[in-house]
C-alpha cells in the first residue's frame, strides 16, 4: 500500500490487454458531453493487421510529472494538483496551442468553432477532476465535464475499460499491478512499458 498523502495519480495502458474497443473514449465523450471533434482519449492501433506486431493503446493526457505543457504556457494557466493531476484554466487560456507542441502525447485539443476554423480554448483530459471553478458547479461541468474525483469516483474511462487494460491510480500501485501481470506471464523481464519514462521519468 502506498502512502496516500504522497500519491501521484497516473494512467497506464497495458498494451497486452488493450483490445481497442474504444469503451474508454466513448465513455469519456459521453460523460463529459464533448463536442464532436474532441477526443480527450483516443485509442490507436499500431501495425494493424500484422500478426505478432499489432497492438493497441489508449492515449490521453498522461498527467506528466514536470508537465511540459505547464512549462510552455504563455498564460501560465496550468496548475498541478497535489495528487499530480494536471489541470488548466479555460478562462485564461488563449488557445495558442503551445501546450500541444510541448506535449509528448498530443493530448491538448482545440474545438474548431466558427467558419474560419478559429480554434477555441484548449481542452484535454482532466482525469475527471473538473477545473478551477467551484467544485461540481454548473460552470465547471460545462467547461470541464464531470468532476468525478470530487465525488470519490474513478475516472470514467478506466472504470469502463472492458479488459482493465487502462489503469488509473497512484503511480506506485499501478506499476505494481502491471509488474505483477508481466511477471505472471512468465516471459521474464519485459522491455520498459511504452511511454512510461517519457511521461513519468525513470524514477518509478
Amino acid at each position: 500500500m502506498s502512502d496516500i498523502g504522497n500519491a501521484r495519480l497516473k494512467f497506464y495502458c497495458d498494451e497486452h490487454r488493450c483490445i481497442s474497443c474504444d469503451g474508454c473514449s466513448v465513455a469519456c465523450a459521453e460523460a463529459h458531453e464533448l463536442p464532436a471533434n474532441i477526443n480527450r482519449r483516443k485509442v490507436v492501433t499500431m501495425n494493424e493487421g500484422i500478426f505478432g506486431l499489432e497492438y493497441s493503446l489508449s492515449i490521453a493526457c498522461m498527467h506528466c510529472t514536470d508537465a511540459p505543457c505547464e512549462q510552455v504556457c504563455p498564460t501560465d494557466c496550468f496548475y498541478i494538483r497535489e495528487d499530480g493531476i494536471v489541470l488548466h484554466d479555460k478562462d485564461k487560456c488563449i488557445g495558442c496551442a503551445y501546450c500541444l507542441y510541448a506535449c509528448p502525447f498530443g493530448a491538448p485539443q482545440f474545438p474548431q468553432d466558427g467558419a474560419f476554423s478559429i480554434k477555441g480554448v484548449m481542452d484535454k483530459c482532466t482525469m475527471c477532476a473538473g477545473g478551477p471553478e467551484e467544485t461540481n458547479s454548473d460552470k465547471e461541468r460545462e467547461l470541464y465535464g464531470q468532476n468525478r474525483i470530487a465525488e470519490g469516483k474513478v475516472p470514467v474511462c478506466a472504470a469502463m475499460c472492458s479488459t482493465k487494460a487502462l489503469l488509473v491510480g497512484d503511480s506506485a500501485e499501478i506499476s505494481d499491478i502491471y509488474r505483477e501481470r508481466v511477471l505472471s506471464i512468465g516471459h521474464g523481464a519485459k522491455t520498459q512499458p511504452y511511454g512510461w519514462s517519457t511521461a513519468y521519468g525513470s524514477k518509478i
Partner: peptide, 20 residues
C-alpha cells in the same frame, strides 16, 4: 470475442497472463 465480447475477453487475457 475481442470485438464482440470485449468484457468477456478479459478472461482470455487473464488465462494468458496467469496460466500462460
Amino acid at each position: 470475442p475481442a470485438v464482440n465480447h470485449p468484457v468477456g475477453f478479459q478472461h482470455f487475457l487473464k488465462a494468458k497472463e496467469r496460466n500462460n
